[in-house]
Measured scan of single mutants.
Amino acid sequence: TEEFVRLWREAVRHNQTLHWNGTDFIPGDEWAEEFARREEEKL
Rank of each mutant, 00 (worst) to 15 (best):
E30A: 15
D29N: 11
T17V: 15
E40H: 08
H19A: 05
H19Q: 09
V5N: 05
A11N: 01
N15F: 07
P27V: 04
E40Y: 12
G28S: 03
A36Q: 01
R6F: 11
V5Q: 04
E2K: 11
A11D: 00
N21P: 01
A32Y: 03
T1L: 13
E10D: 11
E33P: 01
L18E: 00
D24Y: 12
H19L: 06
A36D: 02
A36I: 06
F25Q: 00
T23E: 11
R37E: 05
R6H: 10
F25V: 02
E39G: 04
T23Y: 15
P27I: 05
T17G: 05
N21F: 14
L18V: 06
G22A: 06
R6T: 08
L7R: 11
R37S: 07
T1Q: 09
H19I: 08
F35G: 00
F4R: 00
Q16N: 09
R9L: 14
L43T: 06
E10F: 07
L43W: 10
K42Y: 07
F25D: 01
E3C: 09
P27L: 03
A11G: 01
K42W: 09
E41Y: 10
D29C: 12
G28T: 04
T17I: 15
F25M: 07
L18I: 05
T23I: 15
K42R: 12
W8A: 00
V5D: 05
F25I: 02
R13C: 14
E40N: 07
R9H: 15
D24S: 09
F35L: 05
L18W: 01
V5L: 15
R9N: 13
V12P: 00
E2I: 12
P27A: 03
N15G: 14
E34Q: 12
T1F: 10
Q16S: 12
R13D: 08
W31R: 08
T23D: 07
E33S: 04
L43D: 04
N15T: 04
T17W: 08
R6I: 08
L43G: 04
V12A: 04
E10T: 03
L43C: 13
A36E: 02
R37H: 07
V12C: 05
E10A: 05
E30R: 13
T23N: 12
R13H: 11
E10R: 05
V5I: 15
E30I: 13
E39F: 13
D24H: 08
E3F: 06
T23M: 15
E39C: 15
E39Q: 15
A36G: 06
A36R: 01
P27E: 02
E40D: 05
R9S: 09
R9M: 12
I26S: 10
H19R: 11
R38H: 12
E40L: 14
E34S: 10
E2D: 12
W8G: 00
R9Q: 14
E41P: 02
R6P: 04
E34A: 14
H19K: 09
A32F: 02
T17E: 04
N15R: 08
D24W: 13
H19V: 09
R38Q: 13
H19P: 02
H14V: 12
H14R: 14
E10C: 10
E40K: 07
R13G: 07
H14Y: 13
E41M: 14
E2W: 14
L43P: 03
T1W: 14
E41D: 11
N21I: 05
A11E: 02
V5G: 03
E3V: 08
G28P: 03
R9G: 10
G22R: 03
H19W: 07
L18F: 08
G22N: 11
L18Y: 01
K42T: 06
V12I: 11
T1Y: 11
N21T: 02
E2A: 15
G22D: 08
F4W: 08
R13W: 10
G22W: 04
E2T: 10
D24L: 14
F4I: 00
E30N: 10
G22C: 04
A32V: 02
R37Q: 09
I26Q: 12
G22T: 02
F25H: 08
I26M: 12
E40F: 14
F25A: 01
F4D: 02
H19M: 06
P27Y: 03
E33H: 10
F25C: 06
F35P: 00
A32S: 15
L7M: 09
D29Q: 09
I26Y: 09
R13Q: 14
G28C: 12
E39V: 14
H14Q: 15
E30K: 14
R13T: 12
F35K: 03
N21Y: 13
L43Q: 06
F35Q: 05
F25S: 01
T1I: 14
L43H: 05
D29Y: 04
V5S: 04
E3D: 13
E2S: 13
E10G: 01
V5R: 03
L7H: 07
D29G: 03
T17M: 10
E40M: 15
H19F: 08
H14N: 15
G28N: 04
R38N: 10
L43N: 05
T23F: 15
E33C: 09
G22F: 05
R6M: 11
E41I: 11
F25K: 01
R38I: 10
T23Q: 15
R37V: 05
T23G: 07
L7D: 05
E34H: 08
A11W: 05
G28Q: 03
T17L: 11
D29P: 02
H19T: 12
T17F: 05
G28E: 02
E39P: 03
W8S: 00
K42G: 06
L18M: 09
E33Y: 04
E2Q: 13
N15V: 03
L43Y: 10
E10L: 08
R37D: 04
V5M: 12
R37A: 11
W20Q: 01
L43F: 10
E3Y: 07
W8M: 00
A32I: 04
W31C: 07
G28W: 03
P27M: 02
T17A: 11
L43S: 06
A32M: 03
I26E: 09
W31I: 07
W8Y: 03
Q16R: 14
W20E: 01
E41H: 10
T1V: 13
D24V: 13
